[in-house]
């Protein structure tokens, strides 16, 4: 494995990890695999793109980066909008299933349907033609030992670290974080402990959507923006969430990095067409060898 594959894997793994945090939180608190989560990634990227395109200011590259000052602001607004979209989807679809006590499989199938609908809507509005935040070329920074990274990539890694630390602190040091962990462990007991479970559910959707949007903007900067970008990341997201252990934020990000590195290794050694197979191989290996994941607890 060349050193450059490590950088590529870390950057891709950061994106996957940010998306996987939403998957793991939704899974642990709402107890179903949300296959529409990838769409929040795509919608987040398109929200940011729409804002940048409509405003059309602040496009000049900022320092060594390939984008102007508007994109970070647009990314924040896109995160809020994607979080709102996730809450809206829950309100329109999943909350009614929860109220009826529907089986998990119904929620999962409903999420498949929502995924297709959200993706089709993106294609309808923006077409399936790939688009870009920027077409500026960047000079990679050399770190020695054959390692190179563009300023955009370095910023993405730093942003991921900041976001993961912030989410970890939110979960461990704040009231809403305690409430999220309590609902994840025992939702009925949480209710009689005074926790407004509805508020916790809305927070989980918002956080998941917002982090997915961050991953979407990163993916848009690194590769391109297209309606299928989230769907294509779905398998790596679930592989990362399961590898890390359902409910574990550090696990999701570590799982994302492992999956990203495996993908980069596959691309380098076997060929780019095997990228998705690498995520699938990781997912299968984890399910066979350690179903509870790296940070998960075994359930009897």
């Amino acid at each position: 494995m060349s050193p450059q594959a490590i950088v590529d894997g870390l950057v891709a793994g950061s994106m996957i990890g940010l998306g996987a945090i939403g998957v793991t939180l939704t899974y642990s608190i709402l107890r179903f695999a949300n296959f529409a989560h990838g769409e929040f990634i795509a919608w987040g990227a398109y929200f940011a793109l729409a804002l940048v395109s409509v405003l059309g200011i602040g496009m000049e590259p900022l320092g060594p980066f390939s984008f102007g000052w508007l994109l970070p602001l647009a990314a924040i607004v896109a995160a809020v909008l994607a979080g709102g979209l996730a809450i809206l989807l829950d309100r329109l679809l999943f909350s009614s299933f929860r109220a009826r006590g529907s089986a998990t499989i119904i929620m999962v199938i409903a999420s498949f349907g929502a995924s297709m609908a959200l993706r089709a809507l993106l294609e309808f509005v923006f077409t399936s033609k790939p688009v870009y935040f920027t077409r500026e070329l960047q000079i990679a920074v050399r770190f020695g030992g054959g390692l190179r990274a563009t300023p955009d990539q370095i910023l993405m890694l730093a942003t991921t670290v900041v976001l993961v630390v912030a989410i970890h602190l939110l979960l461990t040091r704040t009231a809403i974080g305690r409430q999220m962990r309590a609902v994840s462990e025992n939702p009925v007991l949480a209710r009689v402990a005074g926790v407004d479970v509805g508020k916790v559910v809305r927070t989980v959707w918002f956080l998941g959507g917002a982090l997915a949007a961050a991953a979407g903007v990163m993916a848009g900067l690194l590769v391109q923006i297209r309606p299928y970008m989230g769907f294509d990341l779905l398998l790596p997201l679930f592989a990362a969430a399961i590898l890390g252990g359902i409910g574990s934020v550090p696990g999701a990000i570590l799982g994302g990095i492992v999956v990203g590195l495996c993908e980069a290794l596959a691309v380098q050694t076997i060929g780019a067409e095997w990228r998705a197979a690498a995520a699938f191989a990781v997912l299968t290996a984890v399910l066979v060898l350690r179903p509870q994941g790296l940070f998960g607890k075994a359930r009897r």
């Binding site: 009231a175 305690r178 409430q179 962990r181 309590a182 462990e185 025992n186 009925v188 007991l189 949480a190 009689v192 402990a193 005074g194 926790v195």
Partner: peptide, 26 residues
């Protein structure tokens, strides 16, 4: 109105302090 369920009446993964803080947050 306080209710203490028969089983699983604490949050095992939270610390004792966090169990109490959770309720104190109201």
């Amino acid at each position: 109105l306080a209710f203490v369920p028969q089983t699983e009446n604490i949050f095992a993964t939270l610390t004792i302090q966090e169990n109490l803080q959770l309720c104190a947050d109201v």
